[in-house]
C-alpha cells in the first residue's frame, strides 16, 4: 500500500505562555492510499485538531503533513471535509448544495467542456448513489439529520477528492440511521477509492468502519496506540456481536478510560447510598 498522508513530528499549541495548551505532541503517522482510518479518544485528545490540520483549516505549530509527498499549505480540493452539522447551505436546494464546488474557480480551472458535462453526470450519479433522488429539489431544513449528512457527503465527493476527512459526521444521528450510514460510507469508500480519515467518539463505529483504529490520549494530545482491525472486508452488522469484535471494543474502551484521567467515584456513590438509607430509616 502506498502512503497517501504522512504526518511527521506534528506539534500544535493553542495560546501561549502559562495558558498554552498542547493539542498535539509529536504525532507521527502514515495513512495509506484508499485506507479507512478511524480516530477515537477521550475529549481533548486532539483528534479533531489533527483532522482539521490535515484539512488545512488549522496549521501546525511545527512538524509537517504531506499528501503524496508534497507538504500541504492550507485547504485544497484534494482533501474534502464533512462536518458534524450546520455545514450545508440552507438557501440552496439539495442539488445546488451538491453542485456548490462547481461554481468555484478552483474547481473550474483545469476543466474542459467535456469535463463539465461529465461533472453534471457526476452530480446525478452521486444523488442516486446517496438515495437523494426524491428530495433533490428540497431545502436542507426540510430533511432529516441523516439525509442532510448524505447531502454533505455527496457535496464533498463531487470534485473526486482523493481524501475524505470526516469529523464526527454521524455524531448527531440516531442509532438506526447511523447503521445505515455506516454501510453506505463503507460502500462509497470502495466505489470511489477514497482515503478516509474518520474521527468519532464511538468505539463501535470506529472498529466497524476502520481498517485501523488510532487511539489518541489527552493532556498533551498524542497518539496513544493503534489497533489493526481483523474483520472481513465485507462488513455486516452482525459482526458487532462477534467475540473478536467485542474483545477489541473492550480493549480500546479500557485504554481510552485509562488515558482519560476520569473515572467513576465509587466512594461517592457509596456515601450517597448510605445517606439515602439513613434518611429512609428516620422516616
Amino acid at each position: 500500500m502506498t502512503t497517501k498522508i504522512s504526518i511527521q513530528a506534528a506539534h500544535k499549541t493553542f495560546g501561549s505562555g502559562e495558558k498554552a495548551i498542547v493539542a498535539l505532541q509529536e504525532v507521527n503517522l502514515e495513512i495509506g492510499s484508499n485506507e479507512f482510518v478511524t480516530f477515537v479518544g477521550a475529549s481533548g485528545c486532539g483528534k479533531s485538531t489533527l483532522l482539521r490540520c490535515i484539512g488545512g483549516l488549522e496549521s501546525l505549530s511545527s512538524g509537517s503533513i504531506k499528501v503524496d509527498g508534497a507538504e500541504i499549505n492550507g485547504p485544497g480540493v484534494d482533501r474534502a471535509m464533512v462536518f458534524q452539522h450546520y455545514s450545508l447551505y440552507p438557501w440552496l436546494t439539495v442539488t445546488e448544495n451538491i453542485k456548490f464546488s462547481r461554481q468555484l474557480r478552483a474547481g473550474r480551472e483545469e476543466l474542459t467542456s467535456s469535463d463539465v458535462e461529465a461533472a453534471s453526470g457526476r452530480a446525478d450519479a452521486l444523488i442516486n448513489l446517496m438515495g437523494l433522488n426524491h428530495v433533490r429539489d428540497a431545502y436542507p431544513n426540510q430533511l432529516s439529520g441523516g439525509m442532510q449528512q448524505r447531502v454533505a457527503i455527496a457535496r464533498a465527493l463531487l470534485p473526486r477528492p482523493q481524501i475524505l476527512l470526516m469529523d464526527e459526521p454521524f455524531g448527531a444521528l440516531d442509532a438506526q440511521t447511523r447503521e445505515v450510514m455506516h454501510d453506505m460510507i463503507l460502500h462509497v469508500s470502495k466505489l470511489e477509492k477514497t482515503t478516509i480519515v474518520f474521527v468519532t467518539h464511538d468505539v463501535e463505529e470506529a472498529i466497524y468502519l476502520g481498517q485501523r483504529v488510532v487511539v489518541m490520549a489527552p493532556r498533551p494530545g498524542r497518539v496513544d496506540s493503534i489497533y489493526q482491525v481483523d474483520l472481513p472486508e465485507q462488513r455486516d452488522q452482525d459482526m458487532k456481536l462477534a467475540p473478536g469484535f467485542l474483545q477489541q471494543k473492550k480493549a480500546i474502551l479500557t485504554r481510552i478510560r485509562e488515558t482519560a484521567g476520569m473515572h467513576t467515584d465509587y466512594e461517592l456513590l457509596e456515601r450517597m447510598t448510605q445517606q439515602a438509607a439513613q434518611q429512609n430509616d428516620m422516616q
Binding site: G55, G56, L57, G74, P75, G76, V77, R79, A80, M81, F83, H85, Y86, S87, L88, Y89, P90, W91, F100, S101, Q103, L104, R105, A106, G107, A152, R155, A156, P159, L165
Partner: peptide
C-alpha cells in the same frame, strides 16, 4: 454566519472573495 458554512467552502477550495460572495452574503441576507 456559522463558521462551518465558511469552513466547508474553504475545504472545497473557495477563495476569500468567493467565500464572501457565495457564502457569507447569501447566508446573512
Amino acid at each position: 454566519v456559522p463558521i462551518t458554512q465558511i469552513e466547508a467552502a474553504q475545504t472545497m477550495g473557495a477563495s476569500r472573495a468567493e467565500i464572501v460572495s457565495l457564502v457569507i452574503v447569501p447566508s446573512a441576507k
